[in-house]
Nucleic acid binder design. Sequence first.
DNA 1: CTGTTTAGGCTTTTT
DNA 2: GCCTAAACAG
Length: 740
Amino acid sequence: MHEKEMFQNIHEDIDFKSSLNPEQLSAVENIEGPLLVLAGAGTGKTKVLTSRIANILLKGTFPSQILAVTFTNKAAREMADRVAKATGGRSDGIWLGTFHSIASRILRSHAPAVGLKTNFIIIDTSDQLRLLKQIIVEMNIDEKKWNAKKLAAIIGKWKDKGLMPDKVGSSEYCDFGGHSAIELYRIYQARLIALNAVDFGDLLLYNLILLQNNDDILKNYQRRFKYILVDEYQDTNLCQYLWLRLLAQGNQNICCVGDDDQSIYGWRGAEVGNILRFERDFKGASVVRLERNYRSTSHILTAASELISNNKDRLGKTLWTKDNEGDPLKLIAVWDDREEARFVADEIESLQQTKGHSLSQMAVLVRAGFQTRSFEERFIAHSIPYKVVGGLRFYERAEIKDIIAYLRLMNQSSDDLAFERIINVPKRGIGDSTLKSFRDFGRSNGNLSMLDSARAMLQDGILKGKIGNSVENFISLIDKWRNLPEEMTVVEFVETVLKESAYIEMLKAEDSMEAEGRIENIKELLRALEEFETIENFLEHVSLVSDIDMLNQDNMVGIMTMHAAKGLEFETVFLPGWEEGLFPSQRSVDESGTKGVEEERRLAYVGITRAKKRAYILYAANRRVYNQFQSSIPSRFIEELPEGSIEKINMGNGLSFRKESSESYDSIKQRYKSEDSAKQSSIPSMNTTKKTNGNFTVGQRVFHVKFGYGKVTNLSGNQLDVHFDKAGTKKVIETYVEAV
DNA sequence: CTGTTTAGGCTTTTT
DNA sequence: GCCTAAACAG
């Protein structure tokens, strides 16, 4: 097909004028020069981005001349799909991906320029912490007080700002257990280089350094990328900003789409200020505001707008909609988190059964991961299908990480972190002291990798006996796998490793329900592996994509954090846990004061604006924290909601609404604290009533929705130990089993 | 070196 | 309440 025809085809597929409003159209049509699009929630931001890319292609630009960056893989995927659709598949070759994946791609082409080899590995957070911990221990720092997480946070902040150790100003001297944090940062970076590894922050940091220090490389990319597009611009950190600015300085064709009101990643270095800098740094930049909302009813929009107007630090915009008023937001006061979950479950059932609403159009959006628990328990009891989004990530499960560690060691024998992980999994009788001897030997013999140290120690006869044999066997396995025929597929290769390492055997020997689940996960991994040609490709994917693409568009209620919900929309949204301390989170308030509260408020704004038609906000008078009841007071955000757009429902046991009482915050808090002890005694009595309903005895047969039939082996309070016929022994709450 | 017990921390949010 | 890491016993 000739190019001319090709672009005609594109043209036929897009009909900008009829489907875009004037503001959107101007953002799509003005492709030359810097442009900032301030796009409120639900104003068609993705549509603008994809149409703009299509339009750029239509003007005759090659796909490879376009750079489009997002923050999440989900957003990248969606954009890729939509652009492909809009252009009839003529978009192949666009540099479209997350900041990290684009950065990784560029860094791989120039790895030697920053002291890495092309096959560098990308370590995840847990590897990073292990490495930092090793350094902390070696430096004799009190690890209890100065833990690896703290150090990771300090180093991460510098990386977010684009600072290598030598660029961190000495004025920023930061004490870490009697040592300079800068010095520890330097050691950490050196250790990473020795491992031929980078962490997440490095991907971006090294990219910036690469462009700053190599004019020829910079010029090359400036020429290549004629058009740059950035999604969720408000979430960029300084390092990303500087990187973008360098790349865009060539053609000045950069389009950033963002919403200052949806900036919720300040805690990981995002700087809303980048929006304000834009007009200053890019001379002659145009600004387009998208304020017409196509998603929500006016009640929802009003409530969200009113709430966010309490923030001082914002550019300010007015969202409007032609949609009708819809239902007011429902504000529900409940006694505790169980009643909260019960209300939501009942409401979901009624919406589904009496109104025929689809479960996939409902979502529970929580502040923190632990809140999902009570909903899961309740949904299981109601047999409501649900999916916890972003809980434990697939690639983070122990068995998956083990397998990946085997592959990493194959890929690169210097990968000590991988070596340490699997040398004794399955058990080979090689423990901490042996590992330490490898490390010490390596360090005193010219920085040998642990695998090479083990090899040398065998040869020198330092390792012998039982352990020696065991290590020898392990090494010969590795060597054998290395020499497997090239034409083997990745799946075949991994199957061989699984079999010969006796990994599957180990799981089978465990003979537990848990081990069975692990084997299932490994099977899932093998399925995912089919897509990859080489191990390198797969490892790259694993490091940059946190979860397997489960194409579950099934009819399930989503349970997720508000952070994870950004960019999504649902007909009905449940927002539980609007209590002081939880939302806004105590930590944000304590650590970042007003700024922290404002970020939490933006999060609330994001939460509410996910709803198209219905939003429920719930708050409980008591909440289990580490399974202990704590009384709580309603979130300050609740009284910021406009009276006219909310309907209050008190479930009898819930707190009164703050506006209805003249009591001060503190006095309410005081009252509930003292009442709590009194009410505590009423809770057990409620439970005992339930207990007499179905008083279980040891030895009794019971049925559980998830685990099937089983026998009670022990009981304490409302908790039963049940030995299930198929699922093994579990602790369950008695309300979830029924007597048979 | 392994397996069991115990103490302590943990619950923000993610590439 | 759950998980992990350290401590201890075998």
